[in-house]
C-alpha cells in the first residue's frame, strides 16, 4: 500500500486524504468528472479555479456533505459514509457518519456561526456535545483559541455584533476546537469586505505554519503563493494542473490555468 502511494508522487507514508476517480453530478450536470488527489499529513493544498469548476463541490465531498456518485474518498483511514468489511462496501446510517466526521474541521464561506450563541458558546458546543469534554476543559481551550485569533475580548459577543472578518475568525477557532486532523476551508474570504480579508488570511497562514493539514478552496492567489505547499488548479470538473505554487502560479503549463491567472495580474 505504502509503495503504491509513493508511486503516486506524494510524499512517502500514508496520505491523509486519498481521493480516487471522484465523480459527482447534480441532475444532468456532471460537476466532477474523475478527480484523483492525495493530501499528505501536514500539507497545505490550495485549490484554485474559475466559478463552476467543481472545486467547492469537491471539498464538500471530502466530508460527505455531498455524496459522490462514483469513486472513493478516504480520510485518515475512514471512507466517510461507508464501511468496508470483508470485501463488501456498505452505506452507513447518519449516526455512524456523524462519528466519522468528528476529526474534520470545516470553515464555510458564510461563516455559519450559530446566531443564538455567543462566540464562546459557538466554540465549545462541539467539544462538549460531540467530543464529550468537560465544560472547563472546553472553555480553557476556547479561550486559548480566541487569543490565537485575537478575539479574546469578543468571547461574549453574539455573531451579529461582530464584523464579517471577526465572525470568520471565530468560525476558524470553532473548527480548531475539535482538534481536527484535517481542516477544510470553503472560500473562507469570499463573503468578506476587501479590507477584512487580510485578518482571516493571516490567521490561516498561522495555522499553515503550525503544520495543520489544510485544503483551502479560494480565489486568493496571494495566499496560495505564500502559504500553499501545493496548488491544485481545477476547471470543468477536472484537475487541470497541480504542483508547487511557484510552478503553477509562476509558470503555468496549461492554457486554461494561464487564462485564469492572467485575470489576477
Amino acid at each position: 500500500m505504502t509503495a503504491q502511494f509513493s508511486m503516486n508522487g506524494t510524499e512517502p507514508g500514508e496520505a491523509l486524504v486519498r481521493a480516487r476517480n471522484v465523480h459527482k453530478s447534480f441532475g444532468d450536470v456532471e460537476v466532477l468528472k474523475g478527480i484523483d488527489l492525495d493530501v499528505a499529513p501536514g500539507e497545505v493544498v490550495v485549490v484554485l479555479g474559475p466559478s463552476g469548476s467543481g472545486k467547492s463541490t469537491f471539498l464538500r465531498c471530502i466530508n460527505h456533505l455531498e455524496a459522490i456518485d462514483r469513486g472513493s474518498i478516504v480520510v485518515a483511514g475512514e471512507q466517510i459514509g461507508y464501511s468496508l468489511r470483508n470485501g463488501r462496501l456498505n452505506k452507513l446510517p447518519a449516526r455512524a457518519i456523524a462519528v466519522q466526521r468528528r476529526q474534520i474541521g470545516m470553515v464555510f464561506q458564510q461563516f455559519n456561526l450559530y446566531p443564538h450563541m455567543t462566540a464562546l458558546q459557538n466554540i465549545i458546543e462541539a467539544p462538549i456535545g460531540v467530543h464529550k469534554q468537560s465544560r472547563r476543559e472546553a472553555t480553557e481551550l476556547a479561550m486559548e483559541l480566541l487569543a490565537r485569533v485575537g478575539l479574546t475580548h469578543k468571547a461574549d459577543a453574539y455573531p451579529r455584533q461582530l464584523s464579517g472578518g471577526q465572525q470568520q475568525r471565530i468560525a476558524i477557532a470553532r473548527a480548531l476546537a475539535i482538534r481536527p486532523k484535517l481542516m477544510l476551508f470553503d472560500e473562507p474570504t469570499s463573503a468578506l469586505d476587501p479590507e477584512l480579508v487580510g485578518e482571516v488570511l493571516a490567521t490561516m497562514r498561522d495555522l499553515a505554519d503550525q503544520g495543520l493539514t489544510m485544503i483551502v478552496v479560494t480565489h486568493e492567489i496571494g495566499f496560495a503563493r505564500e502559504a500553499a505547499d501545493r496548488v491544485v488548479f481545477m476547471d470543468g470538473g477536472y484537475i487541470v494542473e497541480q504542483g508547487k505554487p511557484e510552478d503553477v502560479l509562476g509558470n503555468p503549463q496549461h492554457p486554461r490555468t494561464r487564462a485564469f491567472l492572467s485575470r489576477f495580474i
Partner: peptide
Amino acid sequence: GQIETTEAFGMTRTR
C-alpha cells in the same frame, strides 16, 4: 447552512 454545519461537526440529528 446551519443544518450543514451541525452535520460537518459530526453532531447527531437529535443534538
